[in-house]
Amino acid sequence: MDLTLKVWRQKNSQAKGKMETYPISDISEDSSFLEMMDVLNGNLINSGKEPVAFDHDCREGICGMCSMYINGQAHGPMRGTTTCQLHMRSFRDGETIYIEPWRSGSMPVIKDLVVDRSAFDRIQQAGGFVSVNTSGNTQDANAVPIPKVNADKAFDAAACIGCAACVATCKNSSAMLFVAAKVSQYSYLPQGEVEAKDRVVNMVNQMDKEGFGNCTNTGACEVECPKGISLEYIARMNREYVSATISSEKK
């Protein structure tokens, strides 16, 4: 396949970036999108230029690193996949492909296609955990019975890989789907229930502090989520948040 790539280049967080055009040829349709980027970088290095910096690690759809906005869609045209799971057979020979980083004020570009997602770390540090010590004396997980339906719902939420495609695709740069998944994952289970009220309030407050936008229920996040996290979790989080702020004993 022969392609024309338009790639966002930005030297660092302070520099002004712009789209650069690179023609590329002889790409196998069996190669993954990131392998195509490897070939591009090999060509750039061979011609004495700097390669395009992009985040990637597991290359099997579970680490959430490959944050590329391809032809105006988070992770490209296929649904339910990350960029590393996208193959070149999804594109036509001769096509022009636009490749950009995630765009969100709360996730600034570090270099080229690499963005700073540490806001997600800080949201999880605000409450994305269960207050149990892990030093080897925890009780048997099966000692507390959990209804299957709750365990399944918690697991569906736990499938979130924190890739931030939801933020990138949202016109409001909202992180609600991510935060809702993390909140629900714990509050569905008895171990996380005791601190559910504090958790939802603290995580939502941190989300606001990081500057993420609000949810206007357009549902784009659900469509782009590589793990199929449902919009229902946002509704659930809102209910939890309202109930927590009304009924909390804390001031």
Partner: peptide, 29 residues
Amino acid sequence: RGQTGQQLLLGAYSAMNRQIAKGKIQMFS
């Protein structure tokens, strides 16, 4: 569900986040 390792990793990561929140450890990503 075929994500055993991933879920163990996320579990360990959330336990680490708790320690970060308490100021016990620092993370250098």
